[in-house]
């Protein structure tokens, strides 16, 4: 692996509860893993309140940690801090046999195309001698041009079709639209959650599979992924990569704050 950058990352998520809650069970998909594009040199997970953590790997290959805080608490904070050495825009060899690519080839809940996306695909779906990679790269650019980045008009339940009909959305919507189009073109593609250099929230982009390799494409920023990207998880769409899932007993309301800082060492 040709190292491009060494990045320090700190992913902090805190939940606040208006009334203390108890029996709080959680599962977190916020820990980056080493793969052929990134090497996680060190990574530490700190929980407040502290509790014992268990680990699992889901069917998509994502690592997650889970645990339970039994005692009443009104705040919950997770900090994932570490160092990643990332390679530039190289493609990653497809790590799964072709058979298991099937879930990435068909529309999922968030990426099912309706009339608007089908019409758009009708206009842009002809390939002028392009291979899968070139075709997807063109879609990546096309989506960037035809969408307007706007926060607050969509939410976590918005589907690709809904966001596209309005031509506005955030990275999650851009990624879903890209996935919907790639899957219509029979290109296996998956949703990716991760971090990018700078300060802010988590980011979403896609990986498309061409010639047995995964290529990262980011329609929100009109680029291919490079050494400034740290991947955390992947799946068919948003719901396979939900960062924090949990249940608790209590009557209060919950607020969430996320802050991510990624900087070059």
């Amino acid at each position: 692996m040709q190292i491009d950058r060494t990045l320090r990352f700190c992913y902090r998520m805190s939940l606040g509860f208006s009334e203390p809650v108890q029996k709080h069970q959680f599962a977190l998909r916020m820990i980056p893993q080493s793969d052929m594009r990134q090497q996680i040199v060190d990574c530490k997970v700190v929980l407040e309140p502290a509790c014992a953590l268990k680990e699992g790997v889901d069917s998509f290959g994502n690592r997650y940690v889970y645990g339970e805080i039994v005692h009443p608490h009104s705040a919950f904070c997770v900090e994932v801090r570490g160092t990643a050495r990332t390679a530039g825009g190289i493609a990653v060899l497809c790590e799964i046999p072709v058979m298991s690519l099937a879930p990435y080839r068909f529309a999922s809940q968030y990426t099912r195309a309706g009339d608007a996306l089908k019409a758009y695909y009708g206009q842009n779906g002809q390939r002028a001698g392009e291979d899968d990679y070139a075709f997807a790269a063109r879609l990546n650019h096309q989506i960037y041009q035809d969408m307007v980045y706007k926060q607050g008009v969509t939410d976590i339940h918005t589907t690709a079709e809904e966001a596209f009909s309005d031509r506005r959305g955030v990275c999650q919507d851009y990624a879903h639209i890209m996935l919907a189009l790639c899957r219509m073109a029979d290109i296996p593609s998956r949703y990716v959650v991760g971090m990018i250099e700078g300060e802010g929230y988590s980011h979403a982009w896609v990986e498309i599979c061409a010639d047995q390799r995964w290529y990262g494409m980011d329609p929100t920023n009109d680029k291919m992924t490079d050494g400034t990207y740290i991947k955390i998880s992947h799946g068919r769409d948003y719901q396979d990569c939900i960062v924090n899932r949990g249940t608790f007993r209590g009557t209060g309301t919950q607020t969430q704050q996320v802050s991510i800082v990624v900087s070059e060492e």
């Binding site: 889901d58 069917s59 998509f60 099937a102 879930p103 080839r105 068909f106 529309a107 799946g235 068919r236 396979d240």
Partner: peptide, 9 residues
């Protein structure tokens, strides 16, 4: 894989 009954989990 496109069936509503399919659970990738």
């Amino acid at each position: 894989f496109a069936s509503s009954g399919y659970m990738p989990e």
